[in-house]
């Protein structure tokens, strides 16, 4: 479902004397439906960078990034947007929303964007918010005013509301209490059971052991560090 072949990435900082910072070389990875793969390595090794490359948010310098058959590294903007709507979900560490939009709408939006009936979409969103313990009195407010943990859970609800065939999870259990952490792990297990291919970053070792089938150490792809 997700396959990377020889992906490299570097940043060129034109305004700082054209400094070139290579961050990744020859990264390859294959994730089958129903499988969860953890990216590991020390901070700064490029875990989030690789996630963003898969999502099309960062431009790969070379190599192929295949998600559901589409090469994200070469695709047109509208193809990537379509992929993100239908196929590829991403739970980032930060929630970015339009001001004034109520939480319930924020969570239902991915479904509305692919043409779900409004009521069905809102019901599904409400279900997830209940599971993630966001009190109903907050649903009509914009999540911009929420606490860090609440925002994180809204973000997770948004990422799981549609049954994406492929999912990217950037520290989904960070800043969550034990009960919510269990809920998130259950959501991940469910997603795997329905056949989602998942790539995740988990600093929480116990969580990683419970939901991930394999680990890929990204320091193998770090330039100058590879054996």
């Amino acid at each position: 479902m997700i396959e990377l072949k020889g992906v490299s990435k570097s940043f060129t900082l034109h305004n700082q004397n054209g400094a070139v910072i290579p961050v990744m070389e020859g990264a390859s990875l294959k994730v089958m439906p129903g499988e969860c793969v953890a990216l590991t390595g020390v901070s700064g090794v490029g875990k989030s960078t690789l996630m963003r490359v898969i999502y099309g948010n960062y431009l790969a310098a070379s190599g192929q990034v295949l998600v559901g058959g589409l090469d994200v590294a070469q695709a047109e903007p509208r193809e990537i947007l379509n992929l993100r709507r239908e196929t590829l979900g991403y739970v980032s560490q930060f929630l970015r929303v339009v001001p004034r939009v109520p939480t319930l709408e924020v969570v239902a939006e991915p479904l509305l964007a692919i043409g779900f009936d409004r009521q069905v979409a809102l019901d599904k969103a409400a279900n997830l918010l209940v599971r993630l313990n966001i009190p109903e009195r907050l649903w009509t407010l914009s999540p911009t005013t929420f606490s860090g943990g609440e925002q994180q859970r809204v973000n997770i609800a948004r990422g799981f509301v549609h049954d994406y065939p492929a999912l990217l999870l950037d520290e989904p259990t960070a800043s969550l209490d034990a009960k919510n952490r269990e809920t998130v792990l259950a959501l991940i297990t469910q997603a795997k059971a329905r056949g989602a291919a998942i790539v995740g970053i988990f600093h929480d070792v116990d969580a990683r052991k419970r939901v991930c089938d394999r680990q890929v150490d990204l320091s193998n792809f770090a330039p100058g560090m590879a054996a």
Binding site: R52, G56, N57, L59
Partner: peptide, 8 residues
């Protein structure tokens, strides 16, 4: 893509 141009 908008977010790609702005973020990278």
């Amino acid at each position: 893509l908008t977010d790609q141009v702005l973020d990278d």
